[in-house]
Design a protein around this nucleic acid. Structure first.
Lengths: 123, 123
DNA sequence: TTTTCATATGCATATATGTTCATATGTTAA
DNA sequence: TTAACATATGAACATATATGCATATGAAAA
């Protein structure tokens, strides 16, 4: 029986009622995985700078290299990850390939986080 | 002179006008660092589950262990990181320490990302 | 077709980080 | 004070991942 499990702490804690309530609203493992994967892509300086660069415009790979002073290989590798996650879309025009954000959620999330740290700075 | 630098691609690209425009709106290195650090904390399954668990309520460490079926040490280590980043706050009540989210931005960012992946699922 | 150029990709390496074990800290009860 | 308990922390290990080099791919120009 579940009741017979030995818990880390005594009878007051864990608070089973609360725990059961929280359980109902928790994202599924799959959802957690997807969200954390997305945040993982936002969590690297290089990728974040790339994302911020194309928040409101499209840029080609060498624009990004020049703008961010990065190796072409580095940029392409990171763009591949963003592409695979469908966070960015791209179109070819002659030799160049232009990248831009896939949808507005990305923009919103980044803006919100920027807001957050700006507020922190103000304190 | 800057003009004499050898660029990866020719004259059409990089698009200096665009690049200069983008440069004006880019977050500073420090801001990029802070944002990516925050996302780094959201980018781990364990931490994300912890955060989601305290989205609307406070829980003590062993509640979290029980709820998420995690090692007490693991939970404490991750809480420490969240604490250092001031994403969570805590209060002691006797032997237990209760954790909750520091501010509503966190909640909003998580909600928005959940929205995002739910929309993806719908497609 | 051959060359040139913009971008992509495989591989190797250095670095970062999540987890666990063992133990320390700090609070309450005996 | 001592014992019991909730939580924190240091160290070690395993794993993930960002970057750069070399090279491949694919499009345009010669």
């Amino acid at each position: 029986m579940d009741n017979e499990k030995e818990y880390i702490c005594g009878e007051k804690c864990p608070h089973y009622k609360k725990i059961n309530e929280v359980k109902l609203t928790e994202p599924t493992d799959k959802q957690i995985e997807k969200i954390s994967d997305m945040f993982k892509l936002f969590s690297d300086n290089t990728r974040l700078r790339i994302i911020c660069s194309i928040l409101n415009t499209e840029l080609c790979v060498c624009d990004l290299c020049e703008l961010l002073n990065l190796n072409q290989s580095t940029v392409s590798h990171q763009l591949q990850l963003l592409r695979n996650a469908k966070l960015v879309k791209y179109r070819r025009e002659g030799k160049q390939i232009y990248y831009s954000l896939q949808d507005e959620h990305i923009e919103k999330i980044i803006s919100l986080s920027l807001e957050h740290i700006l507020e922190e700075e103000g304190k």
